[in-house]
């Protein structure tokens, strides 16, 4: 299945999921995205930048070190807004690719992130 089809399929499985973007967080490059409505490149770039910030912040590094007690970055991060939830799923032991998502509060986020991790794993294996 093509990358675009996989992203479309993932988003379709979770009504309320507005954006799924496959990106390289080390370069800020968005490879492909599936969106519920038309969005500009700048919004995808902003989502990617937000995801990078979520996983690269000093607080994130401290959580890894002190709470999860590992040198690896967390596998996922969720930022809770009053209207939308922004999530990022990565495979810290494999590379900088990640799936960045924006969804409504109604979405079952844990389920979404598990499904996203499976999709990301497949995408990275095929790359």
């Amino acid at each position: 299945m093509a990358v675009q089809d996989r992203l479309d399929d993932l988003r379709a499985r979770f009504p309320g999921c507005r954006i799924v973007a496959f990106a390289d967080l080390s370069t800020g490059l968005v490879f492909a995205a599936s969106t519920a409505e038309r969005v500009g490149q700048e919004r995808l770039d902003a989502l990617c930048a937000d995801a990078t910030q979520q996983l690269d912040s000093a607080a994130t590094q401290a959580v890894s070190e002190h709470v999860f007690q590992t040198q690896l970055a967390p596998a996922g991060s969720i930022s809770i807004g009053s209207q939308v939830v922004t999530c990022v799923v990565s495979l810290p032991d494999r590379g900088a690719e990640a799936l960045c998502m924006t969804c409504d509060r109604t979405v079952r986020v844990v389920e979404l992130m598990r499904a996203a991790a499976d999709v990301l794993s497949d995408l990275c294996e095929e790359a």
């Binding site: 596998a75 996922g76 969720i78 930022s79 922004t86």
Partner: peptide, 30 residues
């Protein structure tokens, strides 16, 4: 004890008013 070592605030861009809420998920085994 682990949480007590945390004192920094998350630097998420997704804020609402004065509140910042961020969740981290570790390895699948966590």
């Amino acid at each position: 004890e682990r949480l007590r070592r945390m004192d920094s605030t998350p630097a998420s861009s997704e804020t609402s008013g004065d509140v910042t809420r961020q969740i981290w998920i570790g390895a699948p085994s966590e």
